[in-house]
Computed example of a mutant assay.
Amino acid sequence: MYEIDKIYRRHVHHELALINEQYNLLNKEMVEAKILSFLSELGHVGEESQCYSFWDHSKHSVEDLTSAYMQGLHMLLSIGFELKVDHLKDVNELTNRQSLSKRFIDLYQTALKLNQTYQFTDFQDLVDDYLTLGFALDLDMHQLFETYCNQYEQKD
């Protein structure tokens, strides 16, 4: 089990440090912009994974894939902040037999659904699907989460 809620809480703290106190309404334009940014980052993850490049047999860089995935995670958590999500459910590593291409397409569809509904359940589905993608890409999720937490560690 990975402690995504723990990471999310640190992300919220980081976001709160960036905004002013007048922020209290759902800003749909900001959510839309962040969803578009997430989709862009997701595309970058797809490019780095080369899952759809059946014609290209070169190896991808694990570092570049990890960096792209982390940028997507950052944007995903930022969407949660905009939606005023209080906490996230932890996700266990799941076995999913879908092709990587299908997973990416499903993520795009879930993100577009969230852009219409702004509902927590759709956001949680997006988080679950993104983490499951990370598992399928054989990323070291424990190391990713540890790195992410350290980026926003409180400096006392």
Rank of each mutant, 00 (worst) to 15 (best):
M1E: 00
M1C: 04
M1S: 06
Y2P: 03
Y2D: 10
E3D: 10
I4L: 11
D5K: 03
D5N: 11
K6I: 01
Y8N: 03
Y8L: 05
Y8E: 05
Y8R: 06
Y8A: 00
Y8H: 10
R9I: 07
R10D: 04
R10M: 13
R10C: 08
V12F: 03
L16K: 07
I19F: 06
E21R: 04
E21S: 09
Q22F: 01
N24D: 06
L25A: 00
L25P: 00
L25E: 05
L25V: 07
L25Q: 10
L26E: 01
N27G: 01
N27R: 08
E29P: 09
V31E: 02
V31T: 06
V31F: 09
I35Q: 11
I35T: 11
L36Q: 14
L36M: 14
L39S: 03
E41R: 12
E41A: 13
E41H: 14
L42S: 06
H44R: 12
H44K: 13
V45E: 03
G46M: 04
E47C: 06
E47H: 06
E48S: 06
S49M: 04
F54E: 09
W55P: 02
D56P: 02
H57E: 07
S58L: 09
S58V: 01
S58D: 02
H60R: 11
S61Y: 02
E63C: 02
D64S: 14
T66K: 13
S67C: 15
S67L: 15
A68Y: 00
Y69F: 15
M70L: 09
G72D: 08
G72A: 15
H74K: 15
H74C: 09
H74V: 03
L76G: 07
L76F: 12
L76D: 11
L76C: 13
S78I: 10
S78F: 04
I79R: 06
I79C: 07
G80M: 07
E82I: 02
L83I: 05
L83Y: 08
K84Q: 04
D86N: 12
H87S: 11
K89T: 07
D90S: 14
V91W: 01
L94P: 04
T95P: 03
S99P: 00
L100E: 01
R103E: 04
D106Y: 07
D106L: 10
Y108D: 00
T110P: 05
L114G: 07
Q116Y: 11
T117I: 05
T117L: 04
Q119P: 00
Q119E: 13
F120R: 05
T121Y: 12
D122L: 02
L126D: 03
L126M: 12
L126C: 09
V127G: 04
D129T: 09
Y130H: 01
L133E: 08
L133C: 12
G134T: 13
G134H: 11
F135N: 14
A136T: 08
A136R: 11
L139M: 05
D140F: 08
Q143T: 14
L144D: 03
E146Q: 00
E146M: 05
T147Y: 10
Q151Y: 15
Y152I: 08
Y152K: 04
Q154E: 15
K155R: 14
D156R: 09
